[in-house]
Computed example of a mutant assay.
Amino acid sequence: MFQRILVPTDGSDITAKAVDTAIRLAKSLNARLYTISVKEPFPYSAISEMQPTPPQEFFEAQERIAARRIQDVREAAEAQGVDCEAHTIEALHPWEAIIEHAQRMGCDVLVMASHGRRGVTALLLGSETQKVLTHSKIPVLVVR
C-alpha cells in the first residue's frame, strides 16, 4: 500500500502523536519513513542594523533546533526497526516545503498532526495541516 511515508515535525507534543503513528504505520507496512523539519527564514527588515540577533547566529540556532527535532524522530523510528531519512529545510511557508519535499522524495502518504481547532479559531489561526490538506495531491493522514 504505502511505501514512502513523510512525517513533518515541529517538536510539539501534538506532532509526537503523528510521529508515533507514522512509525507504527511504516513498521506495519515495511515502508520507508521520511521526516522533515522546516526552519524559519531570517526575518529581514528595512532596519537590518536593529536586528536583535545577527543572521548567522539565527541560522545556526534554527539549524540546531531543526536537527534535534529530526534526530528525535530518527531515534524513535530506529528503536522500532524502521528506516528513517531526515532533512531540514528553510522555507517561508512550511506547508509548501512539506508538499514539495514529499514529491521530491516520492512519498505516497503524509502523516500530520492537527490541533483540532474549529470555527473562527481555525480560520483566524490557520493551520499548516489544513494548507497541506488543501493543496496536496498526495493522501494525508491527520492525527489528532
Rank of each mutant, 00 (worst) to 15 (best):
M1N: 08
Q3S: 08
R4P: 00
R4K: 14
I5C: 06
L6D: 04
L6F: 01
V7C: 05
V7I: 06
P8I: 03
T9C: 01
D10H: 01
G11A: 01
T15W: 05
T15R: 08
A16P: 02
A18R: 11
V19K: 07
V19W: 06
D20N: 15
T21Y: 15
A22W: 07
A22D: 13
A22I: 06
R24N: 06
R24D: 08
L25N: 10
K27E: 15
R32K: 15
L33F: 04
L33T: 03
Y34K: 04
Y34P: 10
T35H: 14
I36G: 07
K39Q: 12
E40N: 13
P43D: 07
A46Q: 01
I47A: 05
E49D: 00
E49L: 00
P52S: 00
Q56E: 10
F58V: 04
F58C: 02
E63M: 07
R64G: 03
A66C: 14
A66R: 11
A66S: 12
R68E: 13
Q71H: 11
D72W: 07
D72C: 05
D72P: 00
V73P: 05
R74Y: 05
R74A: 11
E75I: 06
E75N: 13
A77D: 15
A77Y: 10
E78A: 15
G81H: 13
V82S: 12
V82K: 12
D83K: 09
A86H: 10
H87A: 14
H87S: 13
E90I: 15
E90C: 08
A91K: 13
L92G: 12
H93C: 09
P94N: 07
P94F: 09
I99L: 01
E100R: 01
H101C: 01
H101K: 03
A102T: 02
A102L: 00
R104L: 08
M105W: 04
C107V: 04
V109G: 01
L110V: 07
V111E: 04
M112L: 15
M112R: 10
A113N: 10
R117C: 06
R117K: 09
R118A: 08
V120K: 08
V120Y: 09
V120A: 10
L123E: 02
L124S: 09
L124Q: 00
L124V: 05
L125C: 09
L125M: 14
L125K: 10
G126A: 09
G126M: 02
T129P: 10
T129V: 06
K131N: 15
K131L: 14
L133M: 15
L133K: 12
T134E: 12
H135G: 07
S136T: 14
I138P: 05
I138Y: 14
V140C: 12
V142P: 00
V143L: 11
